[in-house]
Amino acid sequence: MKIFYLTLLCVGLMACSSEADRLSDNELRAKIQECDYAVGLTAVELQVCNNYHRECKRRLKEGRFVCN
């Protein structure tokens, strides 16, 4: 049963990463702001926020300053 949940979590996290790729700069900025002010996030929510931050860094390397 644990393997099932671990697999489900991994699939969900990969989907979140690709979701961040599809966000507009404004949408990504809003998601980052939500993450930065959120309290009591679950492990999955923290990983989603990490994915948003990683996407900000990727866009910065492209020369697009999106997140503060």
Score class of each variant (00 low, 15 high):
residue 37 Y to V: 07
residue 62 E to I: 10
residue 18 S to F: 14
residue 55 E to V: 02
residue 14 M to T: 08
residue 56 C to I: 02
residue 35 C to G: 01
residue 50 N to E: 10
residue 7 T to W: 13
residue 57 K to I: 12
residue 65 F to H: 15
residue 46 L to P: 05
residue 24 S to F: 05
residue 8 L to I: 03
residue 51 N to K: 06
residue 47 Q to W: 09
residue 11 V to P: 04
residue 23 L to R: 02
residue 1 M to N: 07
residue 51 N to C: 01
residue 68 N to T: 10
residue 9 L to T: 09
residue 51 N to F: 00
residue 24 S to C: 03
residue 38 A to K: 02
residue 27 E to S: 04
residue 57 K to N: 09
residue 38 A to N: 05
residue 49 C to Y: 02
residue 22 R to D: 05
residue 18 S to P: 11
residue 8 L to R: 08
residue 56 C to P: 00
residue 61 K to A: 08
residue 37 Y to L: 11
residue 41 L to K: 09
residue 39 V to G: 02
residue 25 D to Y: 08
residue 17 S to R: 12
residue 31 K to W: 03
residue 12 G to P: 01
residue 26 N to F: 03
residue 4 F to R: 13
residue 64 R to L: 14
residue 51 N to S: 02
residue 68 N to A: 12
residue 4 F to G: 09
residue 24 S to Y: 04
residue 20 A to E: 00
residue 29 R to F: 07
residue 14 M to A: 12
residue 36 D to K: 10
residue 1 M to I: 06
residue 24 S to K: 03
residue 42 T to K: 06
residue 51 N to W: 02
residue 39 V to P: 03
residue 4 F to Q: 12
residue 41 L to Y: 08
residue 29 R to G: 01
residue 14 M to H: 11
residue 21 D to N: 08
residue 43 A to R: 15
residue 23 L to F: 03
residue 43 A to S: 13
residue 10 C to E: 15
residue 39 V to M: 12
